[in-house]
């Protein structure tokens, strides 16, 4: 019997296979599989900016102009020229602030607002700060959240994770939390998954 002995055939096959693999791993392909050295490595970092919601400086009048745009009025329009008495509760507020809901612990208006200048805020230390610096004020009580925010672990964002290649925009506290009722509101989610493409009324669930 003069057949190929199996080990020899196996060896031949292995050799062929190795040759084929080696050919595949030619330099061009190897180079293509990795990105070229990163030229931007030592480049200056792009900025992380915090989004500035308009309602920190202005309030909607509830009216729209001829083009359909919401007419806003800046805080100082009223609060720099007139003096108002500090209300006892949010429900007593009238005018542009009527109907405000207040659900923020046992805080009083003056806990955050500067009684001297209503277009400004007042820190616990008594320091008066502009509305746009609201995050400093929030951080006084919400330490863990502020710490997480500082480290990128709280609050939505968009842009780049790699600041060498682009900037990042982060949400402000009040982008997501109404400062007068900061609990995240309930809303309807996007539709549930459709799991059974072949069936008209898909329903993948526990019964």
């Amino acid at each position: 019997m003069n057949a190929h002995s199996p080990p020899r055939a196996l060896h031949a096959a292995l050799t062929l296979w190795l040759a084929a693999t080696a050919q595949c791993a030619n330099r061009d392909v190897q180079e293509r599989l990795y990105a070229p050295a990163d030229a931007s490595r030592d480049a200056a970092l792009f900025a992380v900016s915090i989004h500035q919601p308009r309602w920190l400086e202005a309030i909607s009048t509830g009216h729209t102009d001829a083009l359909g745009r919401v007419v806003e009025v800046r805080c100082e329009t009223c609060h720099s020229t007139q003096q108002f008495a500090l209300p006892t509760s949010a429900t007593t507020l009238g005018g542009p602030h009527a109907g405000m809901r207040f659900e923020h612990g046992s805080n009083q208006c003056a806990s955050c607002h500067d009684p001297a200048r209503f277009d400004r805020l007042r820190m616990a230390t008594g320091e008066s700060i502009p509305m746009t610096d609201a995050m400093r004020l929030c951080a006084q009580c919400h330490g863990p959240q502020a710490r997480d925010y500082e480290h990128g672990a709280h609050g939505g964002m968009s842009g780049h994770w790699d600041l060498r290649r682009g900037g990042r925009t982060r949400n402000h506290c009040v982008d997501c939390h109404d400062s007068h009722a900061p609990r995240f509101p309930q809303f309807s989610p996007a539709p549930p998954p459709r799991d059974l493409p072949t069936h008209p009324h898909p329903r993948g669930s526990h019964g």
Binding site: H151, G152, H154, G156, G159, H160, W161, D162, G166, N171
Partner: peptide, 30 residues
């Protein structure tokens, strides 16, 4: 270098993404 779409869409900031080899990255901090 951009953030993934699911992270950018998250309204609550529940998602943290990054390079674990960068000791200063948010993901490392988490």
């Amino acid at each position: 270098g951009e953030l993934p779409a699911c992270l950018e869409a998250c309204p609550t900031g529940a998602r943290v993404f990054g390079n674990v080899l960068d000791p200063n990255s948010s993901i490392r901090w988490v």
